[in-house]
Amino acid sequence: MFDIHLDFDLLEKCNRCGACYDICPSCLNIDGYDPRAVIKDILNGNAGRWLTSVHIYQCLECHHCLEICYQNYGFENAMTAMRLRAARQGIHPPQVRRGWDMFVKTSRLGEPSLAARKKLGLPEPRESGKEEFLKLLEVYRMRRHGPSPCLRER
């Protein structure tokens, strides 16, 4: 239900098209960046070789390919699916991992800077929904994977 699934029929056409290469900022500016090489391997069952490659993180998720695609698909779908698959195997750029850890601990990706706010005359920041988020996260994890290790210990 909450997973991302790839449509291989659309990917087949995607693999033969490449219309978005002329609008994709990474294709235009990063030497060697070639999403169709990844798609080709997904279609051939060799996707695994890309899981540790920086390539799959060079898609900027700008949605240009989606907007220009005559199938309304875009190769960003393939890149997102690859990143999710890599994540399942615990493979992330370190900064992604740090961001994720902070998110699941605090519900945010950074806390408001109180000193700077005071200096600027900004009001106190509002309460975040951290406590409720953490409860929701636990419920979500229970539904998806059963009790988490810390809950089982309890």
Binding site: M1, F2, D3, I4, E61, T80, R83, L84, A87, H92, V96, G99, W100, F103, S107, R108, L109, P123, R126, E127, S128, G129, K130, E132, F133, L136, L137, Y140, R144
Partner: peptide, 28 residues
């Protein structure tokens, strides 16, 4: 201003690890 917001959540750091949690957090 409203109490209770969390991270939206960010796509490249959250959606790339758990799509379901990304959807759920946004929905909340």
């Amino acid at each position: 201003d409203m109490d209770g917001f969390t991270c939206c959540p960010e796509k490249s750091l959250v959606n790339n690890i758990d799509h379901g949690l990304w959807l759920l957090t946004a929905a909340r």
